[in-house]
Design a protein around this nucleic acid. Structure first.
Length: 326
DNA sequence: AATGCGGGGGA
DNA sequence: TCCCCAGCATT
């Protein structure tokens, strides 16, 4: 019974897995990089960043010696920039201590930016530790297999561990097989149950949309004003602080009533030209930005700074984006 | 347990 | 439009 599920999934995986750059990779540094990139990021989006990152920082040592801004420059556009800052910190920490990455879940878990999933993924894939890596795919696959509408983290982890302990496959391969099924067949919408290798074992296949129940998301609306200060050599940029786009560079912005007045006061200006609106969405925020422009004596080329997509949009509207200054 | 954090792709 | 992605840190 259970062994049939295992062999069915593993056979399918050997035959149908996507060819990804990190597939079959056992180098801990490369495995770690791929797993961090894949946090809340689809494989297709992560691939170019994986290549760019390894070309720029081929080893953990090279990453440790880099400036944070150089790391963010490579990560630019990939989102969740805390990942890049933490990975950089991790490299410096490890190189300063042991020199090589920890080889166990427990050791990996203690590093910045490494949570339960990433620790288990790296330990199982790179070091063969028999531990289940539970991500969103695994949670969804198991919820459907067992018809759980409201799976608890404990329930999912325990079941995933039990399934892993019942296979002779390499733990990393088993974990990836389960995730690959979730990513390509057992998808959130319109799952391909007709082509599913384990449909015979699935209690939820009659109504896969019910498992697991969708989360509720609320999106806050924010009114912002941005000021593009344009000079002969480029635009005025400042380094953003705090949790939102922290470490990246961008144009001055203020939020809420009186935002424009505060911006003008900051730079001793009387007025600025309204260029137009820019709309930008984060998962939890909907930003409405009124973009103004004013002449300025200094400025720099935005190409040389790590910028978010948001700031790239604003600069494009002002005709001052990286593409306009190359 | 809930919330915040980017950006993009598929339906 | 809406959903959510090979999650983690913080509260």
């Amino acid at each position: 019974m259970s062994s049939d599920l295992h062999s069915a999934l593993l056979t399918w995986y050997r035959c149908h897995k996507r060819e990804l750059p990190w597939r079959g990779e056992r180098d801990p540094y490369k495995v770690l990089l791929s797993e961090v990139l894949l946090q809340q990021t689809r494989a297709g989006q992560a691939i170019p960043y994986y290549h760019r990152f390894l070309q720029r920082f081929p080893t953990l040592e090279a990453l440790a010696q880099a400036e944070q801004e150089a790391v963010l420059q490579v990560w630019q556009g990939c989102g969740y920039y805390t990942r890049a800052r933490n990975l950089h910190r991790l490299a410096q920490q490890v190189v300063a201590a042991e020199g090589t990455l920890p080889t166990t879940v427990q050791g990996l878990r203690a590093l910045p930016g490494i949570g339960p999933y990433t620790a288990a993924a790296v330990a199982s894939i790179a070091f063969g530790e028999p531990v289940a890596a539970v991500d969103g795919n695994v949670r969804r696959v198991l919820s459907r297999l067992f018809a759980w509408e409201h799976p608890t983290p404990k329930q999912v982890q325990e079941t995933a561990d039990a399934l892993l302990s019942a296979t002779n496959a390499h733990p990393g391969d088993w974990n990836q097989a389960l995730m690959e099924l979730g990513a390509t067949i057992c998808t959130p919408q319109n799952p391909g149950c007709g082509g599913c290798p384990v449909a015979a074992f699935c209690r939820g296949k009659a109504s896969p949309g019910r498992y697991p129940a969708a989360k509720v998301r609320k999106q806050k609306s924010l009114e912002l004003v941005a000021l593009v200060l344009q000079g002969p050599a480029g635009v005025y940029l400042e380094r953003r602080q705090g949790p939102v786009l922290g470490g990246l560079w961008g144009v001055p912005m203020e939020e809420g009533p009186g935002a424009l007045e505060r911006l003008l006061a900051r730079f001793g200006l009387d007025s600025a030209e309204l260029l137009g609106p820019v709309h930008h969405e984060f998962t939890h925020r909907k930003l409405h930005i009124r973009v103004y422009r004013a002449p300025w004596m200094a400025g720099e080329n935005p190409l040389h700074r790590p910028l978010s997509r948001l700031d790239q949009k604003i600069l494009a509207l002002a005709g001052a984006g990286p593409a306009h200054l190359v």
